[in-house]
Amino acid sequence: MATGDHSQTSGATPPIIACQALTKDFSRGRQTAPILADVNLAVDPGGFVTILGQSGGGKSTLLKLLGGFIPPTSGQVLFHGLPLPGITPKIGMVFQENTLYPWLTVEQNIGFGFKVRGKQPAQYRQQVKHFLEHVGLFSARQLYPHQLSGGMKQRVSIARSIAVQPDVLLLDEPFSALDIQLRRRLQGFLSAIWQDMATTMVLVTHNVEEAILLGQRLIVVGDRPGRIIETVDLSDPRFRDRYDARFLALQRHLEGVIEADAYMQDSRLPSHSAEMRSTIPNPAFNPSPKT
C-alpha cells in the first residue's frame, strides 16, 4: 500500500489543481495545532476526487486551502500550474452550511454570480433559465430559500456555483444534513451534472458509500494532523453499484482504515499506524479472484 506520494495523476495531462507539501497549523493562544501535514495531491482536469475522513479531521481545511479561502502555513496550491493567489471564481465552492441569500428568490440566487459581477439581468436571464431547468427547479424559481427543503437548497447552491462555469467545483459535505433517500437522489444529481458539464469536482465527505459512489479517485485523510493515508482508484464502473461485492468490500476496508486511524489517534501511538494499516486488506488493489 503506497502511502507516500499521492500527487501522481492517472493521465498524461497536467493536473488542473495540485498541492505540494501543504501544511496548515491553527494557533489558539500560544498553542499551535497542526491541522494538515505534508499533503500532496493532484487532480486531473475533468476528474472527480472524493476526500474521505472523519468529521473535524482536516478535510474541510484541505478543501478551503484548495479554494484559496485560507492561506497555507507552508507548501503551495497550484492551479493550472501556477500558484493560487486566493479566492477565484474559477474554483467554485459549495459550503456545507446554507449560503443562499435569504432575500433573493431561487432564480435570483442562481443568477447572483452574474449580478455580483455587475451584469444586467437581461444579459444572464437565459443562462439562469437553463440552469433552473437543469437542476429541476424551474417551477420553484419564485420561491425564497426559507420556503425550500434542505435538498432543494443544496441544488440551488450547486446550480449557483456551476452557473458561473468554474473550472473546478469544490463541495464541502454538501449532503451531510440530508436524510438517506434525499442524499442518494442528490448524489445521482451531482453525478449527472459532472458528466454533463465536465467540471472537475472535489468532494469532501465522511460518508464512505458516497465517497466510493461518486469519485473517480478517493483519498482518505487521517486525523490529527490531517494527512493522506490512502488513495484508491475508482475508475472501474463496478464502483458505481453500491451492491456490487467489490464496492461492499472496499467500503468495509475503508471503514476499517478510518477506524484504525481513529484508534491510533486515541491511543496516541502514531508509530504503529503504518503497521496496523498494512493488516487491513485492500480489495481495490489486491482483488481476490472471487470478486
Partner: peptide, 27 residues
C-alpha cells in the same frame, strides 16, 4: 453576517463594491 455568505459572493467573482452593495447592505 456569516462569513460564508461573504466568501460565496467573492467566490462568485464579486468585487468589493458589489459585495457591499448586494450582500452587506441587504443583510
Amino acid at each position: 453576517i456569516p462569513a460564508p455568505l461573504l466568501m460565496t459572493a467573492e467566490n462568485l467573482g464579486g468585487g468589493s463594491f458589489n459585495r457591499w452593495r448586494w450582500v452587506i447592505i441587504p443583510a
